[in-house]
Structures are given as structure tokens and as C-alpha cells.
Design a protein around this nucleic acid. Structure first.
Lengths: 353, 353
DNA sequence: CGCTAGAATGTAAGCGCTTCCACCTACCTG
DNA sequence: CAGGTAGGTGGAAGCGCTTACATTCTAGCG
């Protein structure tokens, strides 16, 4: 492979000049540029990016850490980011954190070791403090799908609370009262936020939140299965269940169907995320859209603006979810119990008043 | 960030020695090693991988080109490869080729420019000749999911023909005669192979292959929808359809259901790939397993063995598909009349006789 | 026509590491 | 005890590029 040295010799100029035509052509006269470009072409010269990085201490490369490299959410993240960055002529290096603090840490070190210019991080295990502490020591970073107080400018996040609210609110609006909730792992902030949105909707409708009707899941299908089984065993007249992601909703639907009930006639199901296959489920899943692609692209833009100084970029830090109504949720069957207008189904009816 | 120089000073040894303890500790006495390691620890030293690559002309990094970075197939590829390589202490850089020759080419150049030690390529547009020509000019490469005559040792492939055969053979065995086929883009070799497996099964059963019953799809859901619509419009008594991938099967199932027919009572559906969500479909999809994860891991192992000289690796070049029987395929109703036993959820029993 | 500012170009010192080669000890062997 | 050997170690030359600084060239001016 030809080196810059051979190009300079063929073009009859110095190394520095060749380097300049690549990095800042305005510093070189037209005539010389032509000569150099011609020589490059003739030799089929490609700069050695490794050498460039070493010499310039910049790599034109952004590092991305995601929990997994596959799956409908992470896959979309990865590919949206790559698309946006490639369009801007930047390179991308991906690595997986597997929702494990040590692995996430190692991933960040790996990316830093490759001399990335910036990091886009989707971490789940590392805490906000980790980043707060290193805000200035670490190379520029943006946190995807996280809201960290004090680091607002480094976060691209979803209003998960609102999403949880929307799902439950819709069910309430069409007449459900006994609404179960299958959450994500409650040590994670997005899972907590989605749940508290659910709770807010209930509170607004003056329905008491009952611990029984909440099962903590794990965001996996199998977790959805287990959770739904437990809910069914309760023997309560549940007419709807909202799941903190589509994956668990798929598991829950399976269990409901196997129990001889039908969806949505007996039990309505609502998911969260709107992954690609949620409309392949039967019935098609009503869910809350998590605009992963847009958010991921925004993270890429954050880097373009803050690190590569592209000025014409408009940043949005917080995104809003949107309810997608499909077939898996409908008004409850009238017969379940003669449901009088607003009276929540019993227990301690004497809440506020 | 501390450099090797500072480590050598603190440890009281030369640069060369420090370098040796990182790269070939056997060349350094135990005592010196201890000193150096202690110094490294104390300074929190991390080698600059960029500088290492430049100096050694090796990057410990393998480049991966896939058509897309997302989706159930590519996502699995990417993450299996990364897993295997990370386990071996190697790094991975991914880029997308988007099934476009020019993009694939650029991707390969990008990876080569980053001084990868080897390439794992899942290309769709570039022809075999491209690689045959460069077998020795290009850095070591392995082609994933492709069989290129003359490059057998560089290919990890699936016996697609067999998969196509298995699907149709099973349908034949349980009594189907009118079997439609929705293929992938027939300029791609895997699509061609799957189809010819189908044809072989038909031939074996002395059933004539009819052009009418073949529709060329595009491997996307929407293509499955269009293809199935066309098949239904034919007005022929089709009792089964095999789709060249699960994606199109999902589309086909949708159309079948919307037409008032039920699956598998009226029409059996078989997919190909066994993507994760194929069992979320309703009814659960009978399909042919494409062992992407294993094959991808094998590609990684190929690199480990052939490039990084790990000797204890056993390579397998050709993989075999496996039929996964689930609920979407069953024996055809006797004589197209109301089905006897087999009744599943019996919604609209109105078969289209 | 000489002088000077500014543009264009060249020189050379690194960037942080690897690795060839030379050197220096022990330690054996005969 | 001389000579050989092999394991440890250090010196120093790069890897291919960027960039501060020095130098040369070119106009434009008085």
C-alpha cells in the first residue's frame, strides 16, 4: 500500500503538503492540489487511518456502547447511529455492555483505548454518579435512554412516565378498572418511570393501586409468561394487563390464550416499545411507541454538534412516547360484573372522599 | 494518560522490556515482570491500542461487514461474532453493506483502512469473482452465508437447498399436493438454492412444478403480502405455501387470515430462518432453522484459527438446516371439505370450498 | 526598485508503541 | 579455566502520519 511519502515524491512536494491537501486544502494552492491529487489517484493511495489517529490524537471515530448488539431495540439503535454517523463521514465502533457494570466499564475503556473522539452510551448497570464524577475526565459522552439530573445536556431520554400513563389512561378511558401491571426490573429507572406513569393514571381515576396487581418482570418473554401465570392464579377479575415492554406482552398473551381466555374479549393487553414484530402478534399488539430510531439518531447528532462542531444541528433531549392502538386492547365485556359507573371494584372503596 | 515511557521509568527498566511483558512475558524474568506490572498498576497504565497497531502492523481487530446491523438475522450474526471474538480478546469493528455493491466495497475498504487483521464478510451484492480475484491481495477473509466454488476454505455456508427440500418434503409427507412457493429475490444464490430444494422434493414425489405457484418475493413482509395476494387471486386450491423466509411468512399469514381462511386448516404455512419471533406468530410458525448463531461463531473461529493461529479450533464449513415443526402446518383437510378432527380454535369455520 | 506582509511550502520533531540487534551476564561444558 | 550458550535486557530505528516552526516566494506598496 502506498504511503504519503511515495505520494509526496511522485507529486514533487513535501509530506506536509500532501497532508495538507487531505486535511485543510485551503492552505494549498490550486496547482499543487491538482498535482497531489493526481499522484494519489495514480498510486491508489489510502491514508492509514491508524497513523492519522496516532499523529493527530483524533480518530474520526465514535464509540458506541449498547447493552446488546441484537434485538429489536438495540439493533435499531446500532443501525440508526451508524447510519447518521456514516452520512457525516465518521466511523463507528460498537461494543456490548450486557447490562453488567464491570462489562460496561470495560467496554468504555476499550472504546477510550481505541481513541474514539466521543462516546454514545446506553448503559444499564452503571450509575449516574459514575458519569457525574467523570464528566470532565472522560472524553465527551452522551447517554442514550437515560435522564441523569445534573447531566441534562448529556442525556437523550424518553419520557417513560408519560408512556406508562398513556397506556393505563387509555384502558381506563375505555372502561377497565382491574388493570394488572407487569413491570421491568424495578432497579432500573425506566422500569420505575413506566410504572409510576401507570400509578399516576390510576390515581387520577381515583382507583387505588394494589400491590397484588403488580408483578415485577425482567423484560424478557419468559418473565412475561411467569408474571402472567401469577396474575391469573390470583383469581381476580382482571380485564386488562399492561406490560412494560412488548417482549413480556408476547409472553403474557401466550399464557392468556393458553388459559382459554381470549384477547381482547376477556383480557386486554398493552405493551411498550412498539418493536417491529409487535404487529405480527395475534391479535396485533396495542403498545406505546418508544422512538428508538429517532432518539439514537439524535444521540449521533449530539456528537456531530458538540464534538465535530457541526453548527446547524438542532438537538432535542427529551422524547415523548405515543400510544399505538391496535387490536389487543378493547373495552371490557359488559358482563364481567354489573360495573356501575365510576365505582372502583371494591376493597377499600373509602379512599379519599 | 500514562505512557509506556513513564512505566519504564518508574519500573527502572527499558521501554523494550515493558513492551515485552505485555506481548511475550516469557521473555522477561519473573522479577522484572513483577516490577513492571506493579508500575503499570500504580500508574493505571493502558496501552494505546492505536500506537500498538501502528508499530506492530496488527490491530487485534477483525472487521465485519454485514448487510444490515439490525434485524433478527443480522443482529444475531453481529452479536455472536462479537461474543466469540471478545472471548478471545480480539476486537471487532462492524459496518453495513446494505446489499449494495458500491457500499459493500466501501465497507471493505473502510475496514481494511482501519488495519483489521481479518475480515468476516456477509455480502450480497458483490460477486464471487470479486473475491476470487483478490484472494491473495486482500487481507484474510471469510465469507459468511455464501458458498463460492474455488474458495471453499473461505466460506461458511448453509445448505439452503436441503432446507427448501425439507420444508416441501414434510408438506408432501403429510398429504399436500398443491404447494405454492414464495421465493426470495432469485438473483441471490440462497434464494435460488432454497427454491431448487423445493423443486427437488416435488420432483421426487412426481408432482410437476408449476410456474403459477411460484411467486418471487423480496424477503420482506410486504413482499410476502403481495405474493400471497397474488397466489390467492389465482383461485387454485392451494393447501400449503412455503415461504423462503419467516418475514414473508408473516406477511402471507396476515393475508390468509384476512381472506377468511384459517391456518393451518385451510392453508398450511412454512417459513425459513426460525427467527426469534416466529414462535410469536399465531399460529406458531413451522419453519426451517437457519443456525445463524452457530455459523457466525464459526466464522469467528475461522479467523481465530487461520489468522491468530489458535490451533485447537475445529472448523465446519457447511451447515445443515433443520425443520422446526410448530402449529402453522398440518395435514390438509380431506378433500377440501370441512375438516374433521384437527379443529383448533375454530373461529370462522367457513373454509373456502 | 527595495521592503515587507502574507501566502505557500518545507523541515523535522514527535505521537506511543514494537522489534531487530547488540550486549551482558550467569552458567555449563570439556 | 577458557569458551560456548542461552536467557535477559537495553538501544534505537522505525510504523505513517500531523503540525509547530522555519523558510521561501509573491505581490503590493511607497
Amino acid at each position: 500500500m502506498a504511503t504519503i511519502y511515495e505520494v509526496s515524491k511522485l507529486a514533487g512536494v513535501s509530506l506536509a503538503t500532501v497532508s495538507r491537501v487531505m486535511n485543510d486544502p485551503s492552505k494549498v494552492s490550486e496547482k499543487t492540489q491538482k498535482k497531489v491529487l493526481a499522484a494519489m489517484q495514480q498510486l491508489d493511495y489510502r491514508p492509514n487511518t491508524i497513523a492519522q489517529s496516532l499523529a493527530s490524537n483524533r480518530s474520526n471515530c465514535v464509540g458506541v456502547l449498547v447493552s446488546e448488539l441484537h434485538g429489536p431495540i438495540f439493533g435499531t439503535m446500532v443501525s440508526s447511529i451508524e447510519e447518521e454517523l456514516t452520512r457525516a463521514g465518521k466511523f463507528t465502533i460498537f461494543t456490548a455492555g450486557h447490562s453488567d457494570a464491570a462489562t460496561e466499564r470495560k467496554g468504555i475503556e476499550f472504546l477510550a483505548g481505541r481513541k474514539c473522539d466521543a462516546l454514545i452510551l446506553h448503559v444499564e448497570a452503571l450509575h449516574n454518579e459514575f458519569f457525574a464524577e467523570r464528566q470532565n475526565r472522560l472524553l465527551p459522552f452522551v447517554l442514550l435512554n437515560r435522564f441523569a439530573p445534573g447531566l441534562e445536556e448529556n442525556c437523550i431520554s424518553l419520557n417513560n412516565e408519560l408512556g406508562g400513563y398513556q397506556a393505563t389512561r387509555m384502558l381506563l378511558d375505555i372502561g377497565h378498572h382491574q388493570i394488572a401491571y407487569i413491570s421491568g426490573p424495578l432497579e432500573w429507572s425506566d422500569a420505575k418511570a413506566r410504572l409510576s406513569g401507570h400509578q399516576r393514571a390510576l390515581a387520577e381515576a381515583r382507583i387505588e393501586f394494589e400491590d397484588d396487581l403488580l408483578v415485577e418482570g425482567d423484560y424478557h418473554e419468559s418473565g412475561g409468561v411467569r408474571a402472567m401465570q401469577r396474575l391469573l392464579e390470583l383469581g381476580r377479575p382482571i380485564t386488562a394487563v399492561v406490560c412494560a415492554n412488548d417482549e413480556m406482552a408476547a409472553g403474557a398473551m401466550e399464557v392468556i390464550r393458553n388459559s382459554g381466555r381470549s384477547i381482547p374479549e376477556d383480557i386486554s393487553v398493552v405493551g411498550f416499545d412498539n418493536v417491529r414484530w409487535s404487529k405480527f402478534l395475534y391479535p396485533k399488539l396495542t403498545t406505546v411507541e418508544y422512538p428508538v430510531a429517532e432518539m439514537s439518531r439524535m444521540a449521533a447528532k449530539w456528537v456531530l454538534k458538540n464534538v465535530y462542531r457541526e453548527p446547524q444541528v438542532d438537538l432535542q433531549y427529551v422524547f415523548h412516547p405515543r400510544l399505538i392502538c391496535r387490536a389487543s386492547a378493547a373495552a371490557p365485556a359488559q358482563g364481567q360484573k354489573p360495573a356501575p359507573a365510576q365505582v372502583a371494584t371494591g376493597k377499600k372503596a373509602g379512599a379519599g372522599s
